[in-house]
């Protein structure tokens, strides 16, 4: 590989530029570094990634942090879009014409799972498909069987071998897991209340979710093996959309316990919740960049857009 053009260019480059050129280049490098430093998010700084203002839901990062996928509502459509880390280079994930949402990259970054909706006369028939991370080669993974049902909110296990999801296949919205090929489906919850929005614990042994079994929505975890349920939050408002930080030490979720929807960050067991957004606007759908920055959807400016907060205590 020593003869590759790339390496040769690197080695020979400075000699070709010369001393004056090197000085100029040095100035440019210094300037570029200064600009980069200026663009480096300061602690607590908020960066707005999208600016169209249309309603968005469930932003999710690729494991290398270079791509963000989210669903956008526009007119009578809900389609998935992918943008670069700075919000540029937007493209649709698929070319489907029916509604699609809830896309998430797998931990290796090579695959993506999403919810695929149907319209009338199959209103309410939602399946989970998986495919390549660029949106190609999509195939059904979890589909309705016998009657219309929702299979949605897919969430990859930390090792990428399993998916958790919600389904109404048994007459009530419950949590399930399956292997990444759709096999070995297992029901995790059995309660007449509403269970939603699963999120794997960092060790892959349990799934945190929102449930209405204790009144309004609270967070709970269920151990995948034993199905033991543990209550994580007990607030006067609803708690929903749990999301573990990449290091597994923090649990972000949305709550209206202080009057409007804000993003809270708690310890991994739900203790010590702190309001991380503190804004009169609506903040929703928390997610994390791979390097630990909090991402969420907010209408604090013009319409609904995706924001990234550089540091969360």
């Amino acid at each position: 590989m020593s003869g590759s053009p790339k390496r040769r260019h690197r080695r020979d480059g400075p000699r070709r530029i010369g001393r004056f050129g090197a000085s100029v280049a040095g100035i440019f490098v210094a300037a570029a570094l200064a600009v980069a430093a200026a663009q480096e998010p300061k602690t607590g700084e908020l960066v707005r990634l999208t600016r169209d203002g249309h309603f968005k839901q469930r932003p999710a990062w690729s494991p290398d942090g270079k791509q963000l996928v989210f669903a956008r509502h526009r007119g009578a459509t809900i389609f998935l879009f992918v943008v670069a880390a700075d919000g540029s280079s937007e493209r649709r994930l698929t070319n489907r014409t029916d509604p699609e949402y809830d896309a998430v990259f797998d931990p290796e970054g090579g695959a993506i799972a999403l919810a695929v909706d149907k319209t009338s006369p199959n209103q309410g028939d939602i399946d989970i498909h998986t495919g390549k991370s660029d949106g190609s080669d999509l195939k059904p993974l979890v589909v309705s069987e016998g009657k219309l049902s929702h299979e949605e909110w897919p969430a990859w296990s930390p090792d990428g071998k399993q998916l958790a999801f919600t389904s109404t296949r048994d007459g009530n919205q419950e949590l399930y897991v399956c292997r990444r090929d759709g096999s070995e489906r297992k029901r995790l919850t059995s309660d007449p209340a509403h269970d939603a929005h699963p999120c794997w614990s960092p060790d892959g042994k349990s799934v945190v979710f929102a449930t209405g079994r204790w009144g309004n929505l609270e967070l709970a975890s269920v151990e995948v093996e034993s199905l033991k349920i543990t209550r994580l939050t007990e607030s006067r408002g609803l708690d929903d959309y749990p999301a573990f930080s990449p290091d597994g030490k923090k649990l972000a979720f949305v709550s209206n316990r202080d009057g409007n929807l804000e993003i809270y960050v708690a310890d991994a067991d739900g203790a010590n919740p702190r309001n991380a957004t503190r804004h009169e606007a609506i903040d929703n759908f928390p997610a994390w960049t791979p390097d630990g920055r909090l991402t969420f959807v907010s209408n604090r400016d013009e319409g609904f857009d995706v924001y990234v907060k550089s540091k969360v205590d």
């Binding site: 509502h73 459509t77 319209t119 209103q123 929702h150 929703n284």
Partner: peptide, 21 residues
């Protein structure tokens, strides 16, 4: 919108998610 409407209140499914979100 999930059924290519323009966001009416006819929530035969996903009622709670739409109401909340």
């Amino acid at each position: 919108v999930e059924d290519t409407g323009d966001g009416g209140w006819d929530m035969h499914d996903r009622n709670f998610q739409q109401m909340q979100d």
